[in-house]
């Protein structure tokens, strides 16, 4: 097959599969936030990638401070928390200024948030420069381990995956096992009724949007461990994340996970055997064709409309 022996193909699949898992983790973190904002609230947040960049830049900034105080080995956990908090509050603020006026015009949120993303990109460029920057990683994130002679698995990949798992479980618990999640779901399913039983729907909207942005911030922190960050980093992932959410079925957590996994794996394995652009084209094309056959996505919840 393609001039490789069977054993080599096996190793390639494992290693590409693993690099697919890193991509999967970042995509999943991005898509989780988007699934909340887009899937639940119906807001098309084109600036979602920039919220990820907020998280990434926070991490980079903190890593610079950590280097000067010589605490590189322990800052990373704080960076994740800080990335979440900062993105959360920017999201909270943006919802108050912008999004809440546009709930009835979903297509217009797309344009307004695109404008927002341009502004945010320029802010990044003016503050941190047009060049890509990368965070100083703690030592325990570097290196790799070798289960067999030919297989290399980078530790930062494992870490990002662990983080994605923790956040996914957290989102699940929040959305389906907490009072807050109940209120969020009630508001999204029937706003008027939710208001009638005493839920403050405006507050729920604001917190939901902010939470989605906060998760994007965590995605940004995770992103710094596998790549460097530039002003337009976020916009590279925005279409992919939308495809993940739409492909998985907008309101379904399981669907989001499954489709993030499928898309990331397909992309990184195909990229090895074809050129990297053709791998991406093949993946996106397949998704578009499947979506044309099945517009409601993979895991559609059955709702009567």
């Amino acid at each position: 097959m393609f001039g490789y022996s069977m054993e080599e193909v096996g190793n390639i699949v494992v290693m590409q599969g693993f690099s697919g898992l890193s991509l999967f983790s970042v995509l999943l973190l991005m898509a989780l936030g988007l699934a909340i904002i887009f899937g639940q609230m119906g807001v098309i947040n084109m600036a979602h990638g920039e919220f990820m960049a907020v998280g990434a830049y926070t991490t980079v900034f903190l890593s610079k401070i950590a280097v000067s105080y010589d605490i590189v080995n322990s800052y990373f956990v704080f960076a994740i928390v800080a990335a979440f908090i900062l993105a959360f509050f920017i999201g909270y603020f943006i919802e108050f200024l912008l999004i809440r006026h546009l709930y009835k015009r979903p297509l217009d949120t797309l344009l307004a948030t695109w404008g927002l993303s341009l502004v945010m990109q320029q802010i990044f460029r003016s503050t941190f420069g047009a060049k890509e920057v990368s965070a100083e990683l703690p030592e325990w994130l570097l290196g790799s381990f070798k289960p067999t002679e030919d297989i290399d698995i980078p530790i930062n990949g494992v870490f990002v995956m662990g983080l994605a798992l923790i956040v996914t479980v957290g989102v699940y618990l929040f959305m389906y096992r907490s009072r807050w999640g109940l209120r969020v779901r009630a508001t999204m399913q029937n706003r008027v009724m939710a208001g009638a039983v005493g839920i403050n729907t405006k507050k729920v909207d604001r917190l939901t949007f902010a939470l989605g942005c906060g998760i994007a911030g965590v995605a940004g922190a995770a992103f710094t461990t596998i790549a460097s960050t530039g002003p337009t980093t976020g916009s590279l992932y925005i279409v992919d994340s939308f495809m993940v959410v739409v492909f998985g079925g907008a309101a379904s957590l399981m669907g989001t996970i499954a489709s993030a996994f499928g898309i990331a794996q397909a992309q990184s394995i195909l990229q090895f055997f074809m050129t990297s652009s053709m791998g991406k084209v093949a993946t996106l094309m397949t998704i578009v064709i499947i979506l044309m056959m099945r517009p409601e996505g993979l895991f559609a919840s059955k709702v009567r409309k």
């Binding site: 119906g42 098309i44 979903p106 297509l107 797309l110 279409v239 939308f242 495809m243 739409v246 652009s277 991406k280 084209v281 996106l284 094309m285 998704i287 578009v288 979506l291 044309m292 517009p295």
Partner: peptide
Amino acid sequence: RRVGGVYFAIITQAIALILSIL
């Protein structure tokens, strides 16, 4: 298939991306 609105916007965007990468 009665796909419209937001989904149409996102899918046409993806197709534009595919074409430009291609």
